[in-house]
C-alpha cells in the first residue's frame, strides 16, 4: 500500500461518504455544503487519474460556478422552496424509499460487476495503448496537449459549446425574469 494508494482511498471514501450523507439529509443547506465536499474530493480523484487540468476546471467551474449558483438560488429563495417533504417522522434523515434503493443498489451491483470484469479483461484498445506506450504518465504536460487538441481537433465542439453557453445564459435569464405586474 503506497502513499498514493492511501490518499486515493481517503479521497474516494470522502467522496462516497459525503454523497451518501448528501442524499439522506433533510436539510438542503447542509446537503449543498456536502455537495461542495463531494466536488472537491472528486477533483482530487481527477488528479490521481493524471487529469490535472480537468481537476482545476472542476474546481473552478463546478465549485466556483455551479455550486455557488445553487447556493445563491437556494439561499435567496422563498421559504417554501426550502421544504423537503418526506414521508416519515424523522427530522434529520430523509427516509429512503425502498424502490429507489433497490434500483440503485441493483445498478450499483451491475456496474461493479462490470468494472471487475473489466479488470480481468481490459478492452482491446486499452491493451494496445499499453503496448504502444501511449499511456499518460505523471511527467506529461496535459495543458499544452489539451490546448493543442482543443484548437485543432476539437475546435468545432469548442465553438458550439460556447454558443450553447450563450443560449443557456439567455434562456435562464429569460426564464427567471420578473413578470410585468398588471
Amino acid at each position: 500500500m503506497t502513499i498514493t494508494a492511501l490518499v486515493f482511498y481517503v479521497f474516494a471514501t470522502v467522496a462516497v461518504g459525503s454523497a451518501l450523507l448528501l442524499v439522506t439529509l433533510r436539510n438542503i443547506a447542509r446537503a449543498l455544503f456536502l455537495f461542495f465536499v463531494v466536488l472537491f474530493s472528486v477533483a482530487g480523484l481527477y488528479v490521481f487519474a493524471l487529469a490535472d487540468f480537468v481537476a482545476i476546471t472542476q474546481i473552478l467551474v463546478y465549485v466556483g460556478g455551479v455550486l455557488v449558483l445553487m447556493l445563491f438560488a437556494f439561499m435567496l429563495s422563498n421559504k417554501e422552496l426550502l421544504h423537503d417533504l418526506q414521508l416519515g417522522t424523522s427530522q434529520l434523515f430523509a427516509l429512503p424509499v425502498w424502490q429507489s434503493v433497490l434500483l440503485a443498489a441493483s445498478l450499483l451491483t451491475v456496474l461493479i460487476y462490470a468494472a471487475l470484469q473489466l479488470g480481468n479483461q481490459e478492452p482491446g484498445w486499452v491493451l494496445a495503448a499499453r503496448d504502444e506506450g501511449t499511456v499518460l504518465s505523471p511527467a506529461d504536460s496535459n495543458v499544452q496537449q489539451l490546448g493543442l487538441q482543443f484548437m485543432t481537433r476539437y475546435v468545432l465542439p469548442f465553438e458550439v459549446v460556447s454558443v450553447l453557453l450563450m443560449m443557456a445564459l439567455i434562456g435562464a435569464a429569460h426564464l427567471s425574469r420578473k413578470e410585468a405586474t398588471p
Binding site: 454523497a19 451518501l20 448528501l22 442524499v23 429512503p96 434500483l103 440503485a104 445498478l107 450499483l108 456496474l111
Partner: peptide
Amino acid sequence: ACLFAIGLY
C-alpha cells in the same frame, strides 16, 4: 459506480 448509484437514488 458508487457515485452514480447514489446520484440515481
